[in-house]
Amino acid sequence: MQLEELKTEWQKLERKVELCENLNEKLIHTIISGKSNYILDQMKQKHRALLLILFIEIIALMAVLLGNPFDFRYFIQYLPFVLLIIIILMAAISLFRFHKSIITDLSKNNLKITIQNILNYFSKNKVYDAYFGSISLAIGLLVPWSFLPNKIDNKGWEAGVTDTLIMMVITIIIYLIAFKSGAFKNRDQEKLSDTMNEWNELQHLVHLTDNHTEVG
């Protein structure tokens, strides 16, 4: 069978389409008011959740700075909180810019550019996943230092420093246990590996397309 014969067969499908009823308004309305499964839409939804968490963290840290609920007496005690606010703010601004730069309109680009854009977005997104893990760890490691002066005043140098180090070690242990037990994978674990597979699949397609373009 030649390609033209295949075309004739294909055109017969049009008759089947004509027999299909029109899609009703209710069905279309229900579908368009649903949630998208498109990978970049999923990424943007995750960004919105991360931005909300970062915003809550900034509010909580600001509350500590302004309200002094832990009776800090020295400026240095505020320093870890100030540093954390700066780090989180920078991460949030950067994430927000990246989030805004993601174009999810699938009519804007042809197939090749769409695939390449998705690959670029995924490559950039890896950085933000790393940011988020680092911020969580930084909070656990920096905050105990703020309480050191009070501990020194109350328990003395040795006990104060030991206590702070123990808290930091506990933080690292909790972080490692959580990491090993898959707590950081949480709900996104499955999605992430699926996306990675999809990503690899798309990358393979891009290589194929590029190779063919070179040959062509």
């Binding site: 069905l27 579908i31 499964n37 699938l106 042809n110 197939l111």
Partner: peptide, 28 residues
């Protein structure tokens, strides 16, 4: 062209492994 672009771009890049949330509408 607009419709073909969206349909094909979606079909190729869509991750079908992610389970779609069940839509409540009986029409769907």
């Amino acid at each position: 062209t607009w419709a073909y672009r969206i349909a094909i771009n979606t079909a190729v890049t869509y991750s079908k492994k992610i389970k779609r949330n069940e839509l409540s509408g009986s029409s769907v």
